[in-house]
Nucleic acid binder design. Structure first.
Lengths: 182, 182, 182, 182
DNA sequence: GATGAATGAGCATTCATTCAT
DNA sequence: CATGAATGAATGCTCATTCAT
């Protein structure tokens, strides 16, 4: 593992354990010196931004794959919901970071926008080819599709519900009902 | 306005302007002394917690009223979605605080749990009397109902979509489709 | 118990528990209001001083009694040492306060000096009538007599030795050896 | 002088002048920045602890030397008493710190215990080889030997007696009388 | 006598950042 | 590339004291 990777991993650990990515924590957990962290990332915000982008890229890669595997509209819609829930389950620290680190999101700035735009476009493309899906504005489609999964993910990450697995089918079905053509 | 109220208002203003509720800011905006803030709230966390509870109480009061006005299932479901969106639109600072101040949510602790439980119970009661609504687990119902509105609220508060008004009907309808009995 | 007494007791409790006599603590423990404490004692230093004097008076009263009971020089010397050790054992919180509250000693000021002078005089009077005791300067006599007991009291109060009872005889004998005429 | 030493010296000066080791004082007197103090000592308690240990080590070194120079039991006992009194006279600020900074003693914690234990052992070793000294428990021997000197040191440091020099012989003799075999 | 809101100086601590080696 | 000493602004908190009721 390279120094960079060690630092990013330490930052994630640190965020998970303390809710922040203070440089002292990162230093302690990665074994890198303050100067080294600065050398590689330019500062605390740089670390947070890089981590945010790296995680988001990983998450989004799976979204595209899920769409690629879809054999019909219902399958695609359900697949996206399930993928989202499973990713959160398998990557709780990463999910927490994406959802809770407002500072990192800000720091990620432009690159984040670019990533989101490109994903939105990919999804929009796919939807366009699905006559079984009602025509909805992009953001509305996104919100109806993943909003419930997102909300339950938050609850699960906060320890307020015991399992995401058990709600997968319910959410997939609800999303399909909400967006399908009658 | 009592000292307490002045302090809470100042904290909200401060959060809206700076993203934090630093005591110096609260002091400046409320005109209260540090000691006075401590006297009434025991510290920064106490202020944040009190503000969180106060805002949440206001929001939840409206939810109960909205349910009371509902004349049938579809009306009730749509009413909740619309109420949520309108409350956010009319109270953007309050909404931002609820959604973004993780520290305040933690500080609000037990009282928050109690409020949420009691609201959940009220909604569950209402749902029970509606045969036109599919039977879903409490949290799933909540997530399907308000998750999309919540997600769009976040986007709107972040300035990423221009209007919540325009999506009200779409979200109300989508929620109804998702939860109604076939 | 009068308000004054409640306050003094609360101050002692507070010192024993926290190492200080902060007014908030005293307030909490005594049930008296800040204003009331000020009314009776004029401030935190006033409470500390009053407590110091009260405790010292109690201790010194016993010293005089012990001297009065002495039937000869050896008995008197041993009695003082034993009294000291027993008083500490029976009043550990009070002893701790006298030994550790530098602030209180300063606040006790003039009244403390007066008490000490009068006790010194009483002891000196007694010594004068004892030809079996070597002639030593006042402070040296005091130090040789009670210094060891004082030091072991400190250790015991700090939990560093298990029992004062067991050293009573040793210290009484050592004091007598140190001050007796050959 | 290294930064660390400058900071420790400033802390001692500060304690002597104000009775506390407030960080602002240390900063002012040492010229070091707050951050630097934290970098080296982790906080105010860390500075106090380090200073306490350093001073105690110096004092104890002399004790061991004094024992090494002793040519017989009486010489050794007297030497320890004299060394104690002279060290206090030559290092009044250090002595005051050791005797009055309860917070520092607490902060010094484990390292302090270790130092004390090792000194106790050295003294016990020496005593064992002296048949002219009565057999006394370790703490009792320590208290009888140095308790009086300690008590007079306190009085002298508080300005209540004019000279320690004049009592050296008295205390040395008294200690010897108290511990010698008949 | 009693109450408690209000004040503000004082203090410890955290943290991102810089820079000489 | 790496290290760690040094900096100082920002921040939260404690506490004795005052005073109107």
């Amino acid at each position: 593992m390279s120094r960079q990777e060690e630092i990013l991993e330490a930052a994630l650990e640190s965020f998970d354990a303390t809710g922040t990515t203070a440089i002292e924590e990162i230093k302690r957990r990665s074994g890198a010196s303050v100067g080294s962290i600065y050398h590689h990332f330019g500062g605390v915000d740089g670390v947070a931004a890089a981590l945010y982008i790296e995680i988001l890229r990983g998450y989004q890669g799976g979204v595209v794959q899920a769409l690629g595997r879809a054999r019909n509209a219902e399958d695609g819609v359900g697949g996206l919901v399930r993928y989202h829930l499973r990713w959160v389950q398998r990557n709780p620290e990463r999910a927490r970071f994406l959802l809770q680190s407002g500072a990192a999101r800000v720091a990620a700035g432009d690159e984040l926008q670019a990533l989101n735009r490109s994903l939105f476009a990919a999804v929009a493309d796919w939807v366009e080819g699905q006559p079984a899906i009602r025509s909805l504005r992009g953001e509305v489609f996104y919100a109806v599709l993943l909003g419930p999964a997102q909300e339950l993910s938050r609850l699960w990450l906060a320890g307020r519900i015991p399992s995401l697995r058990q709600v997968e089918s319910d959410l997939a079905e609800a999303a399909w009902r909400a967006v399908r053509v009658d």
